[in-house]
Simulated scan of single mutants.
Amino acid sequence: MHKFSMIFLAYMASIWTTQAQTTPFTVFNNKGEQVNFEAIIEESKSAQLIFFGELHNNTMVHWLQLQLLKALQPENEKLMLAGEFFERDDQLTIDEWMAGWMTDKTFETESKLWNNYATDYKPLMLFAKTNTIPFIASNIPRKYASLVSREGLEGLEKLSEDAKRFIAPLPVTVDRTLPAYAAMKEMMHGSSMNLDFMIDAQAIKDATMAYSMQEYLEKGHQVLHINGSYHSNFYEGIVWYVRQQFPNLPILTINTVEQADLSSIDERTRQSADFIIVTPTDIPKSY
């Protein structure tokens, strides 16, 4: 009987191992407890602003973003979708496409699309369009962020008033002591580029994405914002700028990480967001 028990346990262990290796993702809360994806959905319903931090080329996470949008949509007239993956000067084109005034082909020709738009972001946009969910293009135009990386924030002052409409109101405060910005500077130590200007370029992106949602948050809309995890991890980046205007706003953050082992997360990762989605390191990538 003992021998049989040992064989049975070994068999069950082999099944568990196989299942663990084929699990597409696990979810943890900020206490380090493993929960299901429905826990994110339930907590999101009571948040006015949700940051879904992604790894841009992780296909599983983009699918989960779509599932969260679908779960929030029913009977929610205040729901809006927002994203880093479109720049603010594309907003008019997006609005016209949403209104049905142009074909998908024309829209995609006229807009500045990320190279994985078709596989990762188009499903979100089509669902939003079909269900009349307004979309906010939140990111600063890349050319202006690039200008800051070369000349600092002062470089923006020479822009026309029309150009400044696509940027957070100047002057923008940058706290370079924030851990995320300080870590960025440390990581780039030794670079020939001006590191303070690089931090400023990151900060103007964060400030502009926060500013893009301000009007709608003031009106009581619920916003699901899609962005790279580093823009909202540890409640910094965009979250920090939102908090300057809305210190008491109900905010929920989601981080995405890739690990070989999906069964646990370390202490630092646990502290990075309200929920952490862990996917395998060999998850299919869109690029």
Score class of each variant (00 low, 15 high):
residue 56 H to D: 01
residue 238 I to Y: 03
residue 263 S to W: 06
residue 243 R to E: 06
residue 169 P to K: 15
residue 36 N to E: 07
residue 77 E to L: 09
residue 2 H to I: 11
residue 46 S to G: 07
residue 234 F to W: 04
residue 40 I to P: 01
residue 284 P to I: 02
residue 75 E to R: 13
residue 199 I to A: 15
residue 1 M to E: 15
residue 282 D to H: 12
residue 107 F to Q: 02
residue 267 E to A: 11
residue 178 L to V: 12
residue 18 T to M: 15
residue 279 T to I: 09
residue 225 H to M: 04
residue 181 Y to K: 02
residue 159 L to H: 07
residue 253 T to G: 14
residue 218 E to T: 13
residue 176 R to E: 12
residue 85 F to K: 05
residue 194 N to Q: 01
residue 120 D to V: 08
residue 188 M to N: 09
residue 264 S to M: 11
residue 181 Y to E: 01
residue 218 E to P: 03
residue 40 I to F: 04
residue 3 K to Y: 03
residue 79 L to F: 03
residue 282 D to P: 01
residue 245 Q to M: 08
residue 69 L to V: 03
residue 154 E to H: 13
residue 98 M to Q: 12
residue 104 D to P: 07
residue 66 L to G: 07
residue 4 F to Q: 12
residue 124 L to D: 02
residue 101 W to F: 13
residue 225 H to C: 03
residue 171 P to C: 07
residue 199 I to C: 13
residue 285 K to E: 05
residue 183 A to K: 14
residue 203 A to Y: 07
residue 109 T to F: 05
residue 215 E to W: 11
residue 21 Q to H: 14
residue 150 R to F: 08
residue 18 T to S: 13
residue 129 K to W: 00
residue 237 G to T: 03
residue 58 N to F: 05
residue 248 N to M: 14
residue 27 V to R: 08
residue 265 I to L: 08
residue 156 L to K: 11
residue 283 I to T: 15
residue 287 Y to V: 06
residue 202 Q to V: 03
residue 161 E to C: 05
residue 65 Q to D: 01
residue 207 A to P: 01
residue 222 Q to K: 12
residue 143 K to W: 01
residue 231 H to F: 12
residue 101 W to M: 13
residue 5 S to L: 11
residue 226 I to R: 05
residue 128 A to I: 09
residue 170 L to M: 04
residue 185 K to S: 05
residue 159 L to A: 10
residue 129 K to G: 05
residue 98 M to R: 00
residue 139 N to F: 00
residue 209 M to F: 01
residue 62 H to E: 07
residue 183 A to G: 12
residue 79 L to R: 10
residue 113 L to R: 09
residue 135 F to Y: 07
residue 175 D to M: 12
residue 282 D to Y: 12
residue 112 K to P: 00
residue 148 V to H: 00
residue 106 T to Y: 02
residue 197 F to Q: 11
